[in-house]
Write a protein that binds this DNA or RNA. Structure first.
Length: 435
RNA sequence: GUGCCUGUAGUUUAGUGGUAAAACUUCGGCUUGUGGAGCCGAUAUCGAGAGUUCAAUUCUCUCCAGGCACCCCA
């Protein structure tokens, strides 16, 4: 079942995958690929366009956006210094690079909003666990350049649809609004003064947090702090009229789309660039009585562009999901990729004359986009059929000396062992019928 | 970053203070026009390093990796 250890099989222990990073192949590869294709398809239908940003960015892109005082920046970021002296970082998330690209390419001058999806590996130097890796994959949808509440709804809807298409059900959405700069300062004052009053009832870590990032105290897991949080001022009651309206509209859209949500007043998110809407999506734990697993999250980040040097604010909202956790969950549909196809046919050859011509047959299939696997390195029919069976390939094409002379092949259905001789010029037609 | 548990062939497991056994897999050979049967053979410096010891895979320590919990998060 589950491996409880991993030993290095190479002679040189330094030549092994780094901690928390793994190779994707076989089923795992197809599972990821299938998800990416489906997610892209959904995103495209909702009007999002693809973008790919570099794995490396200037360190400042993250330190000024995600913010000092956050664990991602302070503890988990992979940084490096180039030979030229630049300080770069492996991206720990997709949002800041996207906004950086938006600014860099002057996208403010295009019709707004701009809607992008992106996916790829992100890196966080955390301690690995099940469903937690140092290199993991996120799929993001973002809408930049509009502060309208319907964009929040659109982004959430798109993200939720992707999750549902991947097989998710019974997802729970926690949502909250943490306001904008109008209302946040008043709220923060109130919150800080409240915590100061109760500082002796807070957990030790949370007393530290009060100095650096007081909002984070709200989602503390410390039981003492949780008690204090019971009566802490909540951001929603401090929302200014505009934020209140915005939040109310977002909720209305969600209700209209039958997306069930739960307002969570303690939800603040670990990245400091969020404004107004924030949300997190959970799925039930795989374990008997484990905690729910967070598989997606996001929110609005109206000031991020400004922090990254944009002259004007670019209101934006995004949804990002953890692909590893989706693909490893028990409800995942195991979407099969369509571009990188799993072979359904095993090509079997028999005898010298047939072997000689077999690459030509494979080329015919390739031109017709029929993916195959083959056993050219083998000669015996029995062993080749055995391989086809072991790899669970549904059909076999048998090409022997007799067939080579007659310009035909035998198509064998591996499930019921029935087979039929098909002329080469009829083969493609015949194969189409099979599906 | 902290704590606990784990680490024997590709996989799953035996085993012992005197350098390791089995099954399956894989590869090679014999066989060979229909699901690989059968037979023969090959594959482990017992996660790495150090220490204790006449002797360590087996004891101790350190490190590494994996799992779990915390922190945090996807």
């Amino acid at each position: 079942m589950k491996k409880t250890h991993k030993n290095i099989k190479t002679k040189n222990k330094d030549i092994a995958s780094p901690k928390g990073m793994r190779d994707l192949m076989n089923e795992a590869y197809y599972n990821f690929q299938g998800f990416f294709e489906k997610a892209q398809e959904v995103a495209v239908y909702y009007g999002f366009k693809p973008i790919d940003t570099p794995l490396l960015e200037h360190r400042e892109t993250f330190t000024t956006s995600i913010g000092a005082g956050t664990d991602i920046v302070d503890k988990e970021m992979y940084t490096l210094k180039t030979k030229g002296g630049d300080h770069l970082a492996l991206r720990p998330e997709h949002t800041a690079p996207l906004v950086r690209a938006y600014i860099e390419h002057g996208m403010q001058n295009m019709p707004q909003p701009l809607m992008f999806y992106q996916y790829g590996p992100v890196f966080r130097h955390d301690n690995p666990q099940h469903g937690r890796y140092r290199q993991f994959w996120q799929f993001d949808v973002d809408a930049l350049g509009s502060e309208k509440s319907i964009m929040d709804a659109l982004v959430i809807k798109t993200g939720m649809t992707i999750l549902e298409e991947a097989g998710a059900h019974n997802l729970s959405v926690d949502i909250n609004s943490i306001g904008d700069k109008e209302c946040r300062s008043g709220y923060m004052r109130e919150l800080i003064s409240y915590y100061r009053k109760h500082i002796h009832d807070l957990g030790i870590i949370d007393r530290e947090r009060l100095k650096i990032n007081p909002l984070r105290i709200l989602d503390s897991k410390d039981p003492k702090t949780k008690e204090v949080n019971e009566n802490a001022p909540d951001s929603i009651s401090f929302l200014c009229a505009a934020c209140k309206k915005h939040f109310k509209e977002v909720l209305e859209y969600l209700e209209e789309m039958n997306i069930e949500y739960k307002i969570n007043k303690n939800l603040v998110r670990g990245l400091s660039y969020y404004t107004r809407t924030v949300f997190e999506v959970y799925t039930d734990s795989e374990e008997e009585n484990g905690l729910p697993v967070q598989i997606a999250s996001g929110g609005r980040y109206d000031y991020l562009a400004h922090q990254l040097g944009s002259k004007k604010d670019v209101p934006a909202v995004g949804f990002s999901m953890g692909v590893d956790r989706i693909v490893e969950s028990k409800w995942y549909k195991k979407l099969s990729p369509r571009i990188i196809k799993k072979p359904k046919i095993c090509f079997i050859q028999l005898g010298t004359e047939a072997k000689l011509k077999s690459l030509n047959i494979i080329e015919i299939l390739r031109k017709a986009h029929v993916p195959i696997t083959q056993s050219l390195s083998r000669d015996s029919l029995g062993s080749q059929l055995g391989i086809a069976e072991k790899l669970a390939i549904p059909y076999a094409i048998i090409f022997g000396v007799k067939e080579a002379l007659e310009n035909s092949v035998i198509v064998r259905d591996m499930s019921n062992r029935s087979q039929e001789t098909v002329k080469l010029n009829k083969l493609l037609e015949y194969l189409k019928e099979l599906k």
